[in-house]
Nucleic acid binder design. Structure first.
Lengths: 222, 222
DNA sequence: CGACGGGTTGATTGTCCTCAAAGCCTGTGG
DNA sequence: CCACAGGCTTTGAGGACAATCAACCCGTCG
């Protein structure tokens, strides 16, 4: 695997496209990370805020013995690395080859201090991260392996257009570390869901999943 | 148990005492909830924001079959119910008799729209909730029962003044639902920690805990 | 006193983890 | 074109940790 990151064309878009209020000359840059590359590390200075243009990113924390908890996957369009603080609280890595747009945190803060609507936008994005984390605590604390996987598939379906055909960018281990399970358990549950006719595997690798019966899947998600 | 809530003296303090920027005439009110009383329910309109003046509050979500995940305990000084949205995402209940200060969400938003420093304060509070949730995902997803209880005791010690004597306001079931365990497991782990000389039970009920060896406790928290 | 809420402890069960092996696909190099 | 290595996934067997079910204890309060 190639292990390097390449700078692409700089641009002067509204901040991360999402904070469209800012049409001042805030310079944003594009950057491509190869699969597996670290974008930033936990406790590193949070100098930039990112948006996924193509690909997928995992944000995770590690325990000292290597146990990993993925807090979120960031898909196309998602903003991540917005810490509202000096340091990153997660490590972020490219799940597959991934292109991001980035902007200096300082530029963002400068504008937010002057413009209330931008500040409110930062608050909205932070709140939606919080909401996701709150739902995920419920999943991690109280749901069975079956319920976790069902919730995961429905979340991915929703976020990847919701057409019932889910092309997962991440491997079983990533899914497991997101759901607080082992990769074997994830694999077993998926096999079981396949066995009872709720999903089918499409194509050659096992990452493309057709949700045959989303109603029944939703029922498993309590 | 008495089941009623009583209004106390209204006051015109800076918003919740915490958002001290607001010395406008934003009316705040005090209110007392008896032990076990609901302060607001999940999905109810979020008309007020609260601050604990005395007592303790639990915020939780329920699954349809009654499984409960407590997302946070709110202790004296903490602000809660700040949803930045129209609806509450948790149910909040008084763990013990609890007095809160409250302010209308609308007043808060009105000021935040005019004053960037207030908006930034809302963002800071939301960010610190997010940070707590992120740490808690790691705990719920990847830590053993021993590690969870150790983390809990250290968190409570820190938030209740950090003198090593922890007077827990909540019962074992609340702790369990916060840590993603059963009350029996919590009890067993506490007994074990007592057995190996890390903590002592003080007084007649089992809620007052002396942390004899915080260093060793911290080591269990990975 | 007796009921009740809260806590501890014991016995057993069950879910998920661990360890292990094998299959499949991709890419690489002869 | 084939052989082979490596990454990823599945599947099986056995084990461990926490859940479940149950009994009992202790204070408090009516």
């Amino acid at each position: 695997m190639l292990v390097h990151a390449s700078v692409k064309r700089p641009s002067t878009l509204g901040i991360l496209g999402t904070l469209s209020q800012i049409h001042t000359a805030s310079i944003t840059t594009e950057f491509t990370y190869n699969k597996g590359l670290e974008i930033y590390g936990e406790n590193e200075p949070a100098d930039y805020v990112y948006q996924v243009l193509d690909g997928a990113v995992r944000s995770y924390k590690l325990l000292s013995d290597g146990r990993r908890q993925i807090g979120a996957f960031h898909l196309v369009g998602d903003v991540f690395g917005l810490e509202n603080g000096v340091f990153h609280r997660f490590t972020a890595e490219a799940v597959i080859d991934t292109t991001v747009r980035l902007i200096k945190r300082q530029s963002l803060e400068r504008v937010a201090n002057a413009d209330v609507s931008v500040a409110r936008n930062l608050l909205t994005m932070t709140t939606s991260s919080l909401q996701h984390a709150e739902e995920h605590m419920l999943l991690l604390g109280r749901k069975s392996s079956m319920e976790r996987v069902a919730a995961f598939l429905l979340e991915m379906d929703r976020r990847l257009n919701g057409v019932g055909l889910v092309a997962l960018p991440m491997c079983r281990r990533d899914i497991a570390d997101y759901l607080g399970l082992t990769l074997e358990t994830v694999s077993r549950v998926l096999s079981k869901l396949h066995g009872i006719g709720i999903l089918n595997f499409v194509g050659t690798n096992q990452r493309e999943i057709m949700l045959v019966d989303r109603r029944r899947l939703a029922e498993m998600n309590v």
